[in-house]
Nucleic acid binder design. Structure first.
Lengths: 146, 146
DNA sequence: GGATATTAGTTGTTTTTGTAACTAACAAGG
DNA sequence: CCTTGTTAGTTACAAAAACAACTAATATCC
């Protein structure tokens, strides 16, 4: 007989993580995509500004581990949409502080509502303890501190 | 004061899942990319054939939830690399059975080794119980049965 | 002060993906 | 048979991502 596999692809963590991530993204995607014509990087930038307040492209990039070219283009799109304003830092004129406009704030709050609801819905399938473990492990795997 | 946020972006599951997935992919990526010049879909197809044996593009697609155009292109690349052979199904000449060549089998085994090792390394950061919960939850989120 | 290196951010070019339209083989109903 | 519908897989074209090269401002060190 064949030297058969004890390897189970559907247990391989990078595979499983990607599948789960893709699947879970779909549900949220339709909100920011259909409703605001945003791309993945765009909602991420929007959420960073909404959640943490004004910051520079650099800061968003290092927090979210997104490459600067992606940020640059996302910020350009968000500025076009009048969701974000840029103001040069006068003490270091290379960088600029990004902030949400009222319209951007409104979009953020709307999307945050959906996010919260979506998240709650996912969690409902599991126990509170399980969810806590999942979050803790994912934060660890993602390289996010606490 | 400001109507402040109880929403924590870094706890939002779709975000967290994506970050964890991206991060965990990086480590494995260099094996299939640097060593075999493969793309993500290509190793997935290779692994499906190596792990489950001969199957059609359709079957791989529905198992892995990959769109048929991506499969089609991945199979073309893998065929170029002489890792996969295609044989028409004579009872239904629309579909073809894909199988690994000896070279494909060798690449699969090599990569599987790295996958196993990589997975073990990840798991080492957690307890056995935690890992079991993680896998169970990810399978659920990914829409994979058991 | 001035050459050199770094850093923030942008732009251009190439890969890769997504979407839609296509071909070829089969299936079913009349 | 022969129209109509469906399925497996491919191809063509548009959208998005990756990567490299660029500009402009600042920092460093002699």
């Amino acid at each position: 007989m064949d030297e058969k596999d004890d390897f189970a692809l559907q247990d391989f963590l990078p595979y499983l993580l990607n599948r789960a991530a893709e699947e879970s993204s779909l549900g949220f995607q339709k909100h920011y995509k259909n409703r605001y014509g945003m791309l993945r990087t765009e909602w991420r930038v929007l959420f960073h500004l909404g959640n943490y307040g004004q910051m520079t492209a650099k800061e968003i990039g290092s927090r979210a581990k997104i490459h600067k070219t992606k940020i640059s283009r996302a910020v350009a799109k968000l500025t076009e949409k009048r969701f974000v304003t840029r103001t040069r830092d006068e003490s270091d004129r290379r960088s600029e502080h990004l902030a949400l406009t009222p319209a951007g704030e409104a979009a953020y709050k709307d999307l945050r509502e959906h996010a919260l609801e979506f998240d709650t819905q996912i969690c409902a399938r599991f126990t509170t303890g399980e969810v806590a473990i999942l979050r803790y492990m994912l934060r660890n795997l993602a390289g996010i501190e606490p």
